[in-house]
Write a protein that binds this DNA or RNA. Sequence first.
DNA 1: ACTCTTTACTTTAACGCTAAAATCCGCTCG
DNA 2: CGAGCGGATTTTAGCGTTAAAGTAAAGAGT
Lengths: 334, 334
Amino acid sequence: MVRMADVAREAGVSVMTVSNVVNERLPVNEPTRARVMAAVEALGYEVNLTARHLRAGRTDTVAFIVPSFHDYFGEVSDKIAPLIEAEGRHLVLERTSGCPEHEMAALSVARLQLYDGVLLSVVGLDRDQLDRVRTAKPIVLLGERDVPDRFNHVRLANEEGARLATAHMIEHGSRRIVGLGCTFDTAHMMTSDRRIGWERAHRDAGLDVDARYVVPISTFTSAAGRDALLDVIASGLPFDGVFAVTDVVALGAVAALAESGLRVPTDVQLAGFDNLDMSRFVPPGLTSVDANHEGVAETAVGLLHRQMAGWTGPAEHVVAPVRLVVRGSTRGGA
Amino acid sequence: MVRMADVAREAGVSVMTVSNVVNERLPVNEPTRARVMAAVEALGYEVNLTARHLRAGRTDTVAFIVPSFHDYFGEVSDKIAPLIEAEGRHLVLERTSGCPEHEMAALSVARLQLYDGVLLSVVGLDRDQLDRVRTAKPIVLLGERDVPDRFNHVRLANEEGARLATAHMIEHGSRRIVGLGCTFDTAHMMTSDRRIGWERAHRDAGLDVDARYVVPISTFTSAAGRDALLDVIASGLPFDGVFAVTDVVALGAVAALAESGLRVPTDVQLAGFDNLDMSRFVPPGLTSVDANHEGVAETAVGLLHRQMAGWTGPAEHVVAPVRLVVRGSTRGGA
DNA sequence: ACTCTTTACTTTAACGCTAAAATCCGCTCG
DNA sequence: CGAGCGGATTTTAGCGTTAAAGTAAAGAGT
């Protein structure tokens, strides 16, 4: 490894002069500067970022910590990246597998020191666990869990989104709508908040809420969605609509319906949540709740920047608005 | 920030004793150890990783540097993560947008110092540019570009995969197969290597190769795939098969065909490349070339570990084998 | 009683960088 | 012609950690 000291020796100057040339801080006489640059070139010197980070107490790096790199989080990450880079910082992604231990570890003093700010998608931690986190580091939480007031937090209008999608299918004739991936959890989480919206749409329309139509799944994958819906079909429980908690799960439903010879939207209407890029293209077009990834990314990064710039006011709790994007999988669509 | 020195003062011992307690290096008498631990708890001390990294000359972190966090790379990243973690290291992802400058910057001495090893998905850099990279840091390159011999490199059997998919459609009756997203580039890259396979399948079957069926696209998105195929349809060029360079592009083709009232596979057979999770579920099931992400991840990480462990033998150039996964979008399928 | 270990802990000296203070030197000005 | 100034460069001092060498004291061996 080539150090500044090597360059200094080669150029016959002090280490500080090299530093000043390399960082363009204090002015350096042209002939000296040229000698230093020549030495830099000759030796192939580049600054040691670890040392700079230690000395500066900054890393100019922001981490986005996600449950998985897949699907939804991949898409959001790609929106976040340019916003971080626009401020001259680097973005890195880390993964927690959604498990509470990893999420907690990501928020440990030690890990946080590596970054100037952190965006964390919470899925595993609850309010109490988050409350144990004590740090002044700028953090913005994303996700559908309940979080302590002192954290900046961006979440989606889950209930409203689910209500919109379900109401839309009811309006177009569905009477028995499976809540695929929904749960009756009492804690705030994606699956329960979205179930509440599904439920409210039923009540609003004067329909009863039948718990048999709430079908939990083990993982939010298409495979799990498909399997769960095939089970419903096999059970003989009659249904004419499916609200899937995510588009990935909805894709599994698409497969299950196709395999079972059920036509979308004629026999069964289908709506998802997230409006992934893919959803536009899966025939006949997946009706989905759009939470405006780009807007969520901007809000979250905006809050983070504000905090990194020294803002000390109260934390904000933003609920990102949603809208329903109607496509061919429901009868209002094209 | 709480430093080791603060803990040392609080516990009435030297800094090294704190270090020894925290890292369980040299043995420390139980009463002392207890005092130190109490001080650690009381002050909420955690090690400063930046300082440790500087001191140790290691970061215990591996970076996977990808063009985008989306789709294919998201899926591969999720396979790579556990393999890195199994060796007790952290994995972080960085993004290049596929542009040569960012890829080069990721390979700069400065950035490489932050990691003990780097996996880089190359799409923008050519052999000459890569040849300028001089570093002893363990690096494994992934991707379809041509790379200098001295780098470990894992790529897919692009030509063979494209040939398999195309031959399969020819075998089942297609005679005019669009190479959607293919190009006539002479440099080795995904789009040209896969075109060569498409071409070879034609020759092997004694069919002529008609350049009008090679349809480049601007980006590897479903939107671009859909638009390009709609243009083909609008142009009146007759076709009865589509080989799409990636599954994401193939999904765009699915949409274009559905919108145009062309039935898959009856009117047009369709095959993609990558065998993404989604491809199994998009009706009628997307026939795709599977490159075994998991195997690729294992190979790449294996090479990286070997290099990080000090291996100095010649670099390896692995071509990951592919197989065709036949589904409903071609006539051999279910 | 004196070496020789062993155990427990401390001191020293980096890792590579840079902010801030100090020094050096040529030049202007009273 | 010496004080004073300003620009160029160097020295000093640390960022927080830890490997390695050092010290001090208690116990073992002859």
